[in-house]
Design a binder for these strands. Sequence first.
DNA 1: TTGACAGGCAAGTAGTCACTTGCCTATGCT
DNA 2: AGCATAGGCAAGTGACTACTTGCCTGTCAA
Lengths: 87, 87
Amino acid sequence: MFKALADPTRRTILDELTERDGQTLFELCTRLLMKHGIDSTRQAISQHLEGLEAAGLVRVKREGRYKFHYLDGAPLKQITERWPSRD
Amino acid sequence: MFKALADPTRRTILDELTERDGQTLFELCTRLLMKHGIDSTRQAISQHLEGLEAAGLVRVKREGRYKFHYLDGAPLKQITERWPSRD
DNA sequence: TTGACAGGCAAGTAGTCACTTGCCTATGCT
DNA sequence: AGCATAGGCAAGTGACTACTTGCCTGTCAA
């Protein structure tokens, strides 16, 4: 999961899903290009989504020929739990 | 900072500093070897500490020929703030 | 059924990263 | 002064990773 967060493009994908959950691959591609200037191939984004899915940060729902991607921020909690700030 | 968290050794260093704050380089080296079986060179650990320091996760205090390393978990908070879980 | 659309598989490549090796600086003890 | 200790600098290497290219599969509408 930490490796998944290491890449700026993947973090931007999470940002996009935060703003608009349940996007498809093509939808993400166009929005990443339009709003964030990320000019990557569809396969690149697809591979990033695979990584995010493997990290448990993105959940997927198939419907016909569409595949919707949903953000799951739950795994992020273990970060602040692992290294609690002594205030 | 996310890249700093991507490496298992660096995360273990943070664990070590969580358990015992203010360790020196050599102290960290021996404890990483003893308790976690991390058999890396001093330079490797030193470079990891540089990365953690650059990420703002570790603060440093020099005293004579010793250099003490302190954990700073504050930057971690922006993670859960950036992608809040909609419960 | 044919073509357009959404997505997947797999190999190759360039760049990055972790780690080592070798040498150097600085502080403290005797 | 002399030596051991604590740490730093820098170049080289092997592995990993992000990205591309090319082709293939599955779904829906006309």
